[in-house]
């Protein structure tokens, strides 16, 4: 059964169309990912799903409730972990959870029981009486996830849940997310612009310029590309790019890895290109397509080319600064 139903969703900001006719369903118990570069419309969509922003057009039904007409029913059914910190860092971990429970109308006795449950889940039970101010970025994020779960939502929204976190913390948070889904059959809707993170999702919608470019499981998306990806370190990227296009009719893309191109059968292509352009190539490697390659073939750009935006940098700095 679909727990989120989105039809022809549109959001305009003056002349800018941030979300341009998006339609999809999310099934109960699924980990569903929105993957795209900054500014693709991910955050705008998640805000509309969470009742924080009114759609300019289209409809959203969440857990059977209409997001525009029954916002309070929707709010009770969802938990949210924002991209930016939304804890009160002058309060203790317990107090942050208590206030959340009170706002969602849970009796105090219930709150106490669930506090133990969610704090244990994110391994923060030993820090429950500490002021959040003293927590690291990863601990804060875990506490926010704990808080988002306190009222037992049917859908948990994670907006860039691991941005700015170190790799260990990221993988720890993912472990929590998988366990949650297993134990509670909770639906998880997340946005990310990390490719490796998107691999954790059951299904991914690739979004760019406010539209869904593709929607499938990570494996199907990659399989859909077919063939292999070849990357080459060359003497002169631009020159070889043109010569490869002229000789084989294959479009190569320049990125920080060097020249990247997609071919049907890599094992036979490599000897050919080595024989034809041997003098210009320093190294060649062959790999299976990744989600990044999928994104590239859909949009003509690589996500990882995207530099951090000013807002991202500020966010990272702020998080980092407050760790001390």
């Amino acid at each position: 059964m679909a727990v989120i139903v989105v039809r022809d969703l549109v959001r305009r900001f003056n002349d800018l169309v941030a979300v341009d006719g998006v339609t999809f369903d999310v099934e109960e118990g699924e980990i569903f990912g929105f993957l795209g570069p900054n500014g693709a419309g991910k955050s705008t969509t998640i805000k509309m799903l969470c009742t924080l922003l009114k759609p300019s057009g289209g409809s959203i039904t969440l857990a059977g409730f209409d997001v525009v007409r029954q916002p309070d029913a929707v709010r009770r059914a969802i938990g949210l972990v924002f991209q930016d910190n939304s804890l009160d860092d002058r309060l203790t971990a317990e107090e942050n959870l208590l206030f959340h429970g009170l706002l969602y109308g849970l009796p105090r006795a219930t709150i106490r029981g669930r506090m133990d449950e969610v704090l244990a889940m994110v391994n923060l039970d030993d820090r429950r009486r500490d002021i959040v101010h003293t927590f690291s970025g990863g601990m804060r994020r875990r506490l926010e996830i704990a808080r988002g779960l306190l009222h037992h939502p049917r859908v948990l929204f994670l907006d860039e849940p691991t941005v700015g976190l170190d790799p260990q913390t990221r993988s720890a948070i993912w472990q929590h997310i998988h366990r949650l889904r297993q134990e509670k059959n909770i639906t998880i809707f997340m946005t990310t612009h990390y490719m490796d993170e998107a691999e954790n999702c059951d299904r991914i919608a690739i979004i760019d310029h406010g539209r869904i470019q593709a929607l499938d499981t990570p494996d199907n998306l990659k399989r859909g590309l077919g063939g292999d990806v070849i990357t080459m370190m060359t003497v002169d990227d631009s020159r070889l790019q043109q010569e490869i296009a002229a000789r084989y009719g294959v479009r190569a893309v320049k990125d920080e890895e060097g020249l990247r191109l997609q071919v049907g059968d890599g094992a036979t292509f490599i000897p050919r290109v080595a024989a034809d352009f041997g003098g210009q190539i320093n190294s060649i490697s062959l790999r299976r397509p990744t989600l990044d390659d999928v994104f590239l073939s859909l949009t003509g750009r690589a996500i990882r080319e995207e530099k951090l935006s000013a807002a991202d940098l500020m966010r990272l700095n702020r998080r980092h600064g407050r760790r001390h």
């Binding site: 009742t51 924080l52 930016d84 910190n85 939304s86 804890l87 959340h100 706002l103 969602y104």
Partner: peptide, 10 residues
């Protein structure tokens, strides 16, 4: 950030 938490509460 805390304001957001309050604004999405029911």
């Amino acid at each position: 950030g805390f304001l957001k938490e309050v604004l999405v509460a029911p």
